[in-house]
Nucleic acid binder design. Structure first.
Lengths: 146, 146
DNA sequence: TAATGATGGTTGCCAAAGTCAACTATCTGG
DNA sequence: CCAGATAGTTGACTTTGGCAACCATCATTA
């Protein structure tokens, strides 16, 4: 692949990462880290055991165990033993965890608003179409295993 | 802004982040951390003082000072006092630093190749154009202070 | 059904990464 | 020259994350 193409893509990766502030420590001006946000989000989406989270987020299980312990202590999640397989801890958000996630989502929405809201409607639609095209095409052609 | 637009954009953010594997600790199979790689890259691009790096990468200056010290000890960068303002340390890559950066760049390029190389040339050109359009437009219209 | 091995999760121990505040040296504007 | 401001350093800490040993439970099979 032509070097200029690679350069352009890497430039996009860098700038878009910066735009989203993905490297900042606290996610979206909340007091949650990016990891904690992701965990709350994934539990809300139905991922409901530590082991699933481990695989999904590629985390060390010891570390994950501690992070979950902290979230439990902060009363954001609660766990119970799976009734069939007692090794498994099932996870769910507490009411407070749901509220926390709502805030995270609001902030994420706000971030998108701040970045995109001033763009003329027609242009915006075309950008969104481009975005879908990018991810669809990459997924379609990528050799990356997963 | 319409909720469906926000959803679509957030979906792009999430999936492109995943594509980049930013949630993984990617060292690109080198013995450098992501931060060290970024620092070498930025110095190579002309960022030539600790303070500039601090602002660009949003780092604590104490921490940055130590990372730079380590890179200096490893003979990847060297510093000198600015001749005009003696508070400022100017930074540059050593020959070894340049070699290290070359390896990092090769690996990063390879990562991009793995994701994009199979895409037909014409399609690829259009995606790259879209990428530029996305960042240019966001930068142009965004309210984000910086 | 007892033994064996696999699996989900916890813990202790450690190193690396990152934060914060106090400090030195230098510069800048009055 | 003095009073801030600025660039960078250092000490003392906390947090993040990795690794391996461990416990409890489950699944397989002789």
């Amino acid at each position: 692949m032509n070097i200029e193409n690679i350069r352009a893509i890497r430039e996009f990766n860098r700038s878009y990462t910066k735009i989203l502030k993905l490297t900042d420590k606290y996610h979206l001006n909340t007091h949650f880290t990016l990891l904690e946000s992701r965990i709350l989000l994934e539990i809300d989406r139905g991922v409901n055991s530590a082991n699933q989270l481990m695989l999904l987020l590629h985390l060390d299980k010891g570390y994950l165990s501690r992070v979950l312990k902290k979230l439990t202590k902060d009363d954001l999640i609660q766990d119970a033993r799976d009734s069939i397989d007692k090794r498994i801890k099932t996870l769910q958000l507490t009411d407070q965890g749901k509220k926390a996630l709502e805030i995270i989502n609001q902030r994420a929405n706000q971030q998108v608003e701040n970045l995109f809201a001033n763009i003329p409607e027609e242009k915006l639609q075309s950008l969104i179409k481009d975005m879908q095209d990018i991810t669809d095409t990459v997924k379609k052609y990528s050799q990356a295993k997963e």
